[in-house]
């Protein structure tokens, strides 16, 4: 009852959107498709929701083929497209009622599934969807996608443009839905959300870089990463770029992430190199890699 893609490719005119994509999502899994804008995430969603026909390869959702059995898939999945696709001029309640009706059900019938999400927006049920905040639109869109009790839920960038509090709440909701046995495929450009998924696929330029659990991906990172800090960030980066043992340097918030070509080295040596270049307040500490480090290493 999960999702399966094998060797899926799709081009628009000359542009290759996705190339030779294969992965499986197990039933009941929360699977994340992580990658920047233009990586091909939406194309994959549209193929799986039967909106696009792949040029090559096969895919199935809940056991149904995405081309042959498209009608069966359309009956059994919930889909939340990238922009919260709601009717702006209908109220919260009218939107939900409408989507319930076209799926041949009622709000009451499946209320238990959406209850803990819907209670948060219920105080605004007579407000038009266009007048809701990003976070509330997101919750309403999720309710609409869930109202017919889908077996598989497709969420295309559900947290884009939403404030951090709503994002956190949203992920908590996904975890609860997962417990109810719904298979969830979610995409996001935010690397920090990767850790919240059971397994993730890192994707860039239409190709998959890696598929695994977030922990395993991070653990595979081949180098030791050092947080290097100094008084002048620009000068620090430029100086490090001139260091002969440099493997990579990337700004990372208040520090830079530095990796060395050698398997092991003395941080004192690097420190004196930086001091000689005129930098002060230098700090060098080994740190844990995160998904972004892994992504950049894989995308190289």
């Amino acid at each position: 009852m999960g999702i399966s893609l094998s060797n899926i490719s799709k081009s628009y005119k000359k542009v290759k959107a996705v190339q030779d994509i294969s992965f499986d999502v197990n039933p009941g899994e929360l699977f994340g498709l992580i990658g920047p804008d233009g990586a091909g995430k939406t194309t994959i969603f549209r193929i799986l929701t039967t909106l696009l026909i792949p040029d090559d390869g096969t895919a199935s959702v809940a056991g149904f083929d995405v081309v042959k059995d498209y009608k069966a898939i359309r009956n059994s999945v919930g889909y939340m497209p990238g922009r919260f696709s709601l009717y702006q001029d209908l109220t919260v309640e009218e939107n939900l009622t409408f989507f319930a009706t076209i799926f041949g059900t009622t709000i009451e019938e499946n209320y238990d599934l959406i209850e803990d999400i819907y209670v948060q927006i219920e105080p605004f049920k007579d407000r038009r969807a266009g007048k809701l905040s990003g976070g509330m639109k997101q919750k309403l869109a999720l309710c609409c996608a869930l109202i017919h009790k889908p077996k598989v839920l497709f969420l295309d960038e559900p947290t884009t443009g939403v404030d951090p509090v709503s994002r956190k709440e949203f992920w908590e909701m996904l975890k609860r839905l997962q417990k109810k046995g719904i298979t969830i495929l979610v995409s996001t450009p935010y690397m920090d959300e990767a850790a919240l998924c059971d397994r993730i696929a890192l994707i860039q330029d239409g190709e998959i870089l890696e598929i695994d659990t977030p922990e395993a991906i991070v653990n595979k990172f081949p180098k030791t990463i050092y947080n290097v800090g100094a008084d002048n960030m620009y000068k620090l980066i430029q100086t490090l770029k001139g260091y002969k043992h440099l493997y990579s340097v990337f700004p990372f918030g208040e520090f830079v992430h530095y990796t060395d070509k050698r398997d092991s080295f003395e941080t004192a040596e690097l420190k004196s190199y930086l001091e000689n270049a005129g930098l002060i307040d230098i700090s060098i500490d080994a740190t844990q890699p995160n998904i972004e480090d892994a992504f950049m290493e894989l995308a190289k």
């Binding site: 039967t50 898939i73 359309r74 999945v77 497209p81 990238g82 709601l86």
Partner: peptide, 13 residues
């Protein structure tokens, strides 16, 4: 334009 057509297509309608 709104994207709601996508949802309508992916529905039993």
């Amino acid at each position: 334009e709104l994207g709601t057509m996508e949802i309508l297509l992916v529905s039993p309608l």
